[in-house]
Amino acid sequence: MNTSEFWALIGDAAREGGTPDTAAERIAAALAKRDADEIVGFERHMRRVLDASYKVDLFGAAYLVNGGCSDEGFDAFRGWLMAQGREAFARAVGQPDSLAELPAVKRAAVTGEELGSERMLAVAAQAHREATGEDLPEEPAAKRPNTDDFWDFDDEDEVRRRFPRLAALFSEAPGE
Rank of each mutant, 00 (worst) to 15 (best):
A122G: 14
P96K: 03
E156L: 11
W7L: 08
G18T: 07
M1P: 10
S4Y: 00
V105E: 04
A13Y: 04
L58Q: 10
G67W: 07
Y54N: 15
A127D: 11
V159F: 01
N2C: 02
P96F: 03
M120S: 11
E16D: 08
D37W: 00
L81S: 08
L31K: 05
A76W: 01
G79V: 13
D155T: 08
P96W: 02
R78Q: 12
A61I: 12
Q126R: 09
A108T: 10
E118T: 12
G175V: 09
F59E: 11
D149I: 07
S117P: 09
A8M: 10
A30E: 12
R107E: 14
E130M: 13
R34M: 15
L115I: 13
A131E: 08
F59N: 09
R165Q: 12
E43L: 04
S53T: 12
L99K: 05
R34P: 03
R144K: 13
Q84I: 03
A24N: 08
Q84E: 15
S117H: 04
G94H: 03
G17T: 09
A141G: 14
W7Y: 07
R44N: 15
L99C: 03
S70M: 06
D157R: 12
L99M: 11
A8V: 09
G11N: 11
R44T: 15
D75A: 10
T19K: 06
V49L: 04
A122T: 14
A167K: 09
G175N: 05
R107I: 05
Y54E: 12
F163C: 06
T111Q: 01
F74H: 13
R119T: 15
G133A: 02
A125E: 15
W80N: 12
R129V: 06
A142M: 14
I10N: 05
F170W: 04
Y63N: 14
A141W: 03
L50S: 03
R165P: 04
F6A: 04
T22L: 08
H128G: 11
R165E: 15
R78S: 01
P20V: 05
D135V: 07
G94C: 01
A90H: 03
T147R: 09
K33D: 15
A88Q: 11
A61E: 07
M1F: 00
T19I: 02
R47F: 02
D35F: 03
V40A: 13
I10H: 04
F59L: 13
E72V: 12
D37G: 14
M82H: 01
D97W: 02
S53P: 12
E5G: 10
F59V: 14
R165N: 15
L166V: 14
T147D: 04
R91W: 00
A127H: 08
R48C: 02
A14M: 09
L9Y: 01
R34D: 07
D57I: 03
F6C: 06
M46E: 13
R91Q: 12
G112F: 02
E138M: 10
I27H: 03
